[in-house]
Structure formats: structure tokens, C-alpha cells
């Protein structure tokens, strides 16, 4: 039964369903149909990303301000020099592509250097603030029984966290041999780490199952239901 949808929507459902099944065919064994779908995926994703970057970055952040500058449009006070200086990231960005040329490949290092430097600067301050100041601070501040949870939360939650953090850090500390008291502490740290890895594994299982259920929801609720009305999706 063809209801409501127009031709390209029907075509879309079929294409999507066939591609979904093509990927699942890999579970039986590697085969040309899967391989084809895989290559389609890489191609489409790469083309999509480029077009998206073009319209959402180059046009508004680079082209418009520069076009405005060259066409003599109105520029905010104090912005004239900065607009001219947009030519610097344009040039640095273009230098990325020098790597495709054997003689000028070294020029692409300039743009890489910018990105590496910027991210180094940001992670230095960001990680310091987040993980080395706020996190240790919380570990100790939460030990105050005057907080919301009272003694219960101190003894059942926050004190064990403090001991666990110290034990794990002891395990990571290799400048002293792990013997005697340090050895016992480090071993306790391993137990905490294993419990955490177990938790991560449990959550990973949940994630993987969810993704498959997502595909079932698509195949039955969207595709099969369109033609049979037996699998109504939630409204």
C-alpha cells in the first residue's frame, strides 16, 4: 500500500533498508555486497563533511567578512585590521594542501604547527583546571559531614572515594617499589581499577545492544510498517 509518501521517500526507505541489510551480511562472512556498502559509506561521509564544512565555516567565517571588505561594505569600528588579518588563517589553511606536493610538503607543517600549538595551549589550562584543581578539590570538600548527605554519604561514598583515589594513584606511582604498605595500597588500587573497568564493560555492552535495537526500530517501525501497518512506531 502506498500511503502518504512521495516517490523519493519510498525510494529512500528501500535504499536505506537494503543498505542496512548489506552491512548485516558481513556477519555471515565478508562479501562484495558488504564491501560495496562500506565504500559507499566512506565516500558519502567524506563528501558530506566537505560540503558541510564549506557552507558552515568557509562562507560565514571567512568568505563573507573578506567579501564585505573587498566590496567596500560597512565594517565595525576597530575590526578593519582584524578582517584583513583573516588572510592569515586562509593562507595557513591552504598550506595544509602543500603536503600533496613533494617539493613544498614541508610548508604544511606551518598549519599543523598552529593547530598543535592551539590545542596544546587549550588542553594545558583546561585539563589543569578540570582534572587537577576541581577534581582533587571535590574529593576533599565532599568529606565535610555538614554537606547534604551528612555522615552517611561521607562514610559510604566520599571517604571510600578518597581512599580509592589515593590507592589508584599509588598504583600509578612507579618511583617506589610496590612492596610493604605501598604494595598493599597499590594492590587495593588495582581492585578499584578493575571494578571501574568492569563498570565500563557493562556500559559498553549496553551501548552495543542499543545500536542494534536502533536498527530494528528502523527496519520494523519505519520500513515494514510503511507497507504492512503491523509495527506502529511510538507517537
Amino acid at each position: 500500500m502506498l500511503l502518504g509518501l512521495v516517490w523519493y521517500q519510498h525510494l529512500g526507505l528501500w535504499v536505506a533498508a537494503i543498505l542496512t541489510l548489506a552491512i548485516f551480511s558481513f556477519l555471515y562472512k565478508d562479501n562484495p555486497v558488504y564491501k560495496m556498502a562500506e565504500h559507499v559509506f566512506v565516500g558519502v561521509a567524506a563528501g558530506y563533511t566537505l560540503a558541510y564544512a564549506f557552507w558552515s565555516t568557509f562562507i560565514p567565517n571567512l568568505y563573507r567578512p573578506l567579501a564585505n571588505l573587498f566590496s567596500g561594505g560597512e565594517i565595525k569600528q576597530g575590526e578593519l585590521l582584524w578582517t584583513w588579518m583573516l588572510l592569515i588563517p586562509a593562507l595557513l589553511g591552504m598550506l595544509f594542501f602543500a603536503r600533496f606536493h613533494p617539493r613544498f610538503g614541508w610548508l604544511s607543517r606551518w598549519s599543523i604547527a598552529f593547530m598543535v600549538g592551539a590545542f596544546a595551549g587549550l588542553s594545558l589550562t583546561g585539563k589543569f583546571q578540570t582534572d587537577l584543581i576541581l577534581q582533587p578539590a571535590a574529593t576533599f570538600v565532599n568529606l565535610n559531614p555538614a554537606n547534604d548527605g551528612g555522615w552517611n554519604s561521607v562514610l559510604l561514598i566520599n571517604l571510600p572515594i578518597l581512599l580509592g583515589v589515593l590507592a589508584c594513584l599509588t598504583y600509578f606511582f612507579f618511583s617506589k617499589p610496590h612492596t610493604g604498605f605501598i604494595g598493599v595500597t597499590a594492590r587495593t588500587g588495582i581492585f578499584f581499577l578493575m571494578a571501574a573497568f568492569g563498570a565500563s564493560f557493562g556500559y559498553t555492552v549496553m551501548a552495543r545492544i542499543s545500536l542494534f535495537i536502533g536498527r530494528l526500530q528502523f527496519l520494523f517501525w519505519q520500513v515494514a510498517n510503511e507497507y504492512t501497518h503491523l509495527f506502529p512506531p511510538p507517537t
Binding site: 588542553s123 585539563k127 589543569f128 572515594i161 583515589v165
Partner: peptide, 19 residues
């Protein structure tokens, strides 16, 4: 509790390394 303790230690260590 155990997860927070271990992950806090892991990310503190990683932050020191990355910084």
C-alpha cells in the same frame, strides 16, 4: 564510588601527562 575513584585517578594522571 569505585568507578569514580578509579576514573578520577586515571584522568588526574592523564591530565598531568597531557599538561
Amino acid at each position: 564510588v569505585p568507578n569514580v575513584a578509579a576514573k578520577r585517578a586515571i584522568f588526574m594522571g592523564a591530565a598531568m601527562g597531557i599538561a
